[in-house]
């Protein structure tokens, strides 16, 4: 194994993202003997802070500074990396909104292979990197072989690799900025728009009745609202419910929605995609109600109910009401 491994470091306001430690762990599954190089792109004093912090966990840090990186625009960063990263390298990138923007095109510019959304790495066999991916919203997994003879860009699923207790590294930052040269882009960043606050703040609720595509149609939403009312909870949802405009975006749980930390999370007709689960924090008691016993949500739920939610939920609502009457 001779390929050099790089970990693309996501950082914001001078703080290194959790994905950095995950990529370090992922690199060790490719080659335990190889220490990956942190690839850190940005500008100003903030970048120096990030680099010096990374030297505590990465033995090698490459700093790529450019004034045009005041906003981290993947279109510009791709051009820069195509100049800095040596041919034949393996570049690990987090598979988030930034990595999806950067990775596929970077592989073309480096003439390297690309594997998206990797959840496990099983090591190297000859010129093949053996990895695991999921398809169909996590319903099935696949063993994938990637020819790394010309290097590879590997987009790694956030949360899939557990950061190891890494030995402290006395890393040294090497400044690679001079290799970048002038950059231009045909995609110019303007501004970031934050979402409007919704009628309720699902991030603060202890109990969420969360509905997914399994709710079937808009006219069924009251079934969930009635249960929520009986429980003193509120209704949240997965993305398809928002896409269909059945509930406002402020109710969406997930990587592109809200991060919630309830005590109890009733996932009703939600399959359990990783983007949805990414919004579920704080180790809640998850109850999955789903008619498909193989739905991935049952792997993360504490308690599962395999049934038609449209029949079960009204029954549950009645029972909760009865109970409240008895205790009142």
């Amino acid at each position: 194994m001779t390929a050099r491994i790089f970990a693309y470091i996501v950082h914001k306001a001078g703080v290194v993202d959790d994905s950095a430690a995950e990529l370090l762990a992922a690199a060790k599954t490719i080659d335990p003997a190889e220490t990956p190089t942190a690839l850190v792109v940005g500008s100003g004093a903030e970048l120096d802070t990030v680099c010096s912090n990374l030297c505590a966990t990465f033995a090698k840090v490459w700093k790529v500074a450019n004034d045009s990186f005041a906003y981290l625009n993947a279109e510009l960063i791709r051009q820069a990396l195509a100049k800095v990263v040596p041919q034949g390298s393996i570049v690990l990138v987090p598979h988030n909104h930034f990595g999806i923007d950067l990775g596929p095109g970077l592989s073309i510019k480096l003439n390297a292979a690309f594997v998206p959304d990797v959840v496990r790495i099983d090591g190297v066999d000859g010129t093949n990197l053996k990895v695991v991916r999921q398809e169909f919203g996590g319903q099935v997994s696949t063993h994938v072989r990637c020819n790394i003879a010309n290097g590879a860009v590997i987009n790694v699923r956030p949360g899939a690799f557990k950061p190891a207790e890494s030995a402290p590294a006395a890393g040294v930052a090497v400044d690679k900025s001079a290799e970048v040269g002038p950059l231009t882009t045909e995609r110019r960043y303007l501004t970031t728009i934050v979402p409007e606050a919704g009628d309720v703040d699902i991030t603060k609720e202890p109990v969420l009745v969360s509905i997914g595509r399994g709710i079937g149609e808009k006219d069924n939403i009251p079934i969930a609202e009635e249960l929520a009312e009986a429980l003193g909870a509120v209704v949240s949802c997965s993305r398809p419910v928002v896409d269909a405009k059945w509930l406002p975006k402020s109710r969406q749980v997930g990587s592109s929605g809200q991060t919630v930390k309830p005590k109890i999370y009733l996932a009703c007709g939600i399959s359990g995609s990783f983007q949805h689960l990414a919004g579920l924090k704080g180790n809640p008691f998850v109850v999955a109600i789903n008619k498909n016993p193989k739905a991935p949500i049952f792997q993360v739920a504490e308690v599962g109910i395999v049934t038609d939610m449209l029949e079960f939920i009204p029954e549950l609502t009645n029972k909760v009401r009865e109970m409240k009457q008895v205790s009142a």
């Binding site: 960043y189 970031t192 979402p195």
Partner: peptide, 12 residues
């Protein structure tokens, strides 16, 4: 669409 329902505006 970026994290948390934020929207990154650009001209292309």
């Amino acid at each position: 669409e970026i994290e948390g329902g934020n929207r990154e505006m650009s001209e292309i």
